[in-house]
């Protein structure tokens, strides 16, 4: 499909966008000119500085509307498409029962100093997320949710003890790339503790992860914002139970 599109304000092809930003200068006419110049360099032409407000003596906040002259080429967009079939809970349970013939063991945690369990809980807790029940609800999974602020060595130890097939880690805090550092620390620890063939599948998730960075971080899969329990369950079945029909 070869298609070129532009942003849509209120008519096809009008190219209208809005941006807001702050410049470190006092609010005066020159500041508004500076904002218009920045917008022009961003490809917004004509740029309408619709709002400018002083924030203290040294800063000015702007809202700019305008027509952007860039084009989006849809055939050059690259995203990570789902490369496994989406299964219903019933299918997931049936595949595990028939092909694995034992529960699929999952260990989940928030690692490092991250106390935001909302992500891991959305995937694992029975309550689930977006109307879908979490993995604890599935008969086929044996779930160990270790909760918040689990030190990496403790996670590795728990994964070994319960013979985890998969380890799920969620990371919400991103200050100074904490989510990336924590993930790297975790994968290094698992590589050290397990021979390659017996290492559990490593899955991380969180709203600020780039799903295409899995290889770089040494994990098997990254799930980003809006991932549902069924997607994670389907992926685990796909990788651990393998292909085949229910």
């Amino acid at each position: 499909m070869s298609r070129v599109i532009r942003p849509y304000g209120d008519a096809t092809g009008d190219g209208m966008v809005q941006v807001s930003f702050t410049l470190p200068i006092p609010h005066d006419k020159r500041a508004e000119g500076a904002a218009a110049q920045l917008a022009a360099k961003m490809g917004i032409d004509p740029a309408l500085v619709v709002h400018a407000k002083a924030m203290g003596p040294d800063f000015t906040f702007f809202v700019v509307y305008g027509r952007v002259n860039h084009l989006v080429e849809l055939d050059k967009v690259v995203v990570l498409e789902r490369d496994f079939p989406l299964l219903t809970p019933k299918e997931v349970n049936a595949r595990i029962k028939k092909q694995l013939r034992r529960p699929l063991v999952v260990v989940g945690a928030c690692i490092g100093t991250d106390a935001h369990t909302v992500g891991i809980d959305a995937i694992l807790n029975i309550k689930g997320f977006a109307g879908e029940k979490g993995l604890e609800y599935y008969a086929g999974f044996e779930v160990h949710n270790l909760g918040a602020q689990v030190p990496v060595p403790e996670l590795v130890e728990a994964a070994g003890r319960v013979k985890a097939d998969a380890v799920l880690v969620s990371q919400v805090v991103t200050q100074r790339d904490a989510h990336l550092h924590n993930t790297e620390e975790m994968t290094a620890a698992f590589r050290e503790a397990f021979p390659r063939a017996r290492r559990p599948l490593l899955v991380v998730g969180g709203p600020r992860f780039d799903e295409s960075m899995a290889e770089q971080l040494g994990v098997d899969r990254i799930f980003g914002r809006g991932t549902t329990p069924a997607e994670v369950a389907s992926y685990l079945v796909h990788r651990i139970v393998g292909a085949g029909s229910a």
Partner: peptide, 13 residues
């Protein structure tokens, strides 16, 4: 919240 640590403009708004 949940996006960035607050910017100057976020706090002002």
């Amino acid at each position: 919240e949940a996006v960035v640590t607050p910017w100057l403009s976020d706090r002002d708004l």
